[in-house]
């Protein structure tokens, strides 16, 4: 085994070798045109980032509600509820999110001609993102509910709570404290997955970060907009990641 010092030296050597061999001038020309980047403001924030946030939040809210229902079905004493929830989770966790977006964009209008998904593109995105995230969130919430000690349900039932009422009043509020960090993680994933709106076909005003960056990149034959869009994603995901770690630390302290 290499000593720690030798490992660092090797690491630095590799980075320097890559940096030295890269063609920085061409890279800068293609990805870091400052005047082009400046042109993107404020639209990339007021339009693209705003839309990304809206798509993410609408998808998250829908997914959370659906995920909650599926989690409770998964834990239901009624067999068919459990099976339906299990099948849903397996299907929507097993499919790429991209396919769900295409399905929502193409199949739903075909299957129900004349009916519009309320909210237009926002509704469609909420539906597609929600369908995908609900499967993951259902599993997270189920794990959270099962992490609440069994005695809590027994105490509630012996006080005369029905199973459903005990779930709502006693178990779920405790489960939510447990699942807030993983759900925030899910929010980060959704934030990135909202880029799949690309495949729904949106108007100029409905463009979010990825679509906005790509459109501008092809107009200008330069990739700087992609880089700027990427930085905008990090602007949100890095602080969110920080929040998740803080919440996890706090949750760890609370359970002690």
């Amino acid at each position: 085994m290499l000593s720690q010092g030798a490992q660092y030296a090797l690491f630095v050597a590799v980075v320097v070798a890559f940096a030295a061999s890269a063609d920085w001038a061409r890279l800068k020309n293609q990805f870091a045109q400052m005047d082009l980047a400046k042109q993107m403001f404020p639209d990339i924030i007021t339009l693209a980032l705003k839309n990304t946030v809206l798509y993410t939040l609408s998808g998250f809210v829908f997914g959370l509600v659906l995920g909650m229902v599926i989690a409770l079905m998964r834990l239901s004493p009624v067999g068919p509820y459990r099976w339906v929830a299990g099948i849903y989770i397996e299907i929507f966790r097993g499919l790429p999110a991209l396919l769900i977006f295409i399905f929502v964009g193409v199949a739903v209008p075909l299957a129900f001609p004349g009916t519009e998904i309320p909210g237009g593109t926002y509704g469609k995105v909420a539906l597609a993102l929600g369908l995908v995230s609900a499967a993951y969130m259902a599993e997270t919430i189920r794990a959270g509910i099962q992490a609440v000690p069994k005695g809590q349900m027994e105490a509630a039932r012996s006080l005369g709570f029905s199973h459903a009422r005990a779930m709502v009043s006693i178990i779920v509020p405790q489960a939510f404290r447990i699942v807030i960090p993983p759900l925030t993680n899910e929010l980060v994933l959704l934030f990135k997955d909202s880029s799949l709106v690309l495949f729904l076909g949106v108007t100029l005003e409905e463009r979010e970060l990825a679509k906005y960056g790509r459109d501008l990149a092809s107009q200008t034959a330069n990739s700087t907009p992609i880089l700027v869009a990427g930085l905008c994603y990090l602007l949100v995901t890095v602080p969110l990641g920080f929040v998740v770690r803080r919440l996890e630390t706090k949750a760890g302290e609370a359970t002690r």
Binding site: A155, S158, Q174
Partner: peptide, 20 residues
């Protein structure tokens, strides 16, 4: 059973207070 349980108080070894 929920109606009957209202008339029966139960105290557990592990207390089972609602921590939240």
């Amino acid at each position: 059973i929920d109606e009957v349980r209202r008339r029966i108080g139960m105290v557990f070894q592990q207390f089972n207070l609602f921590p939240h």
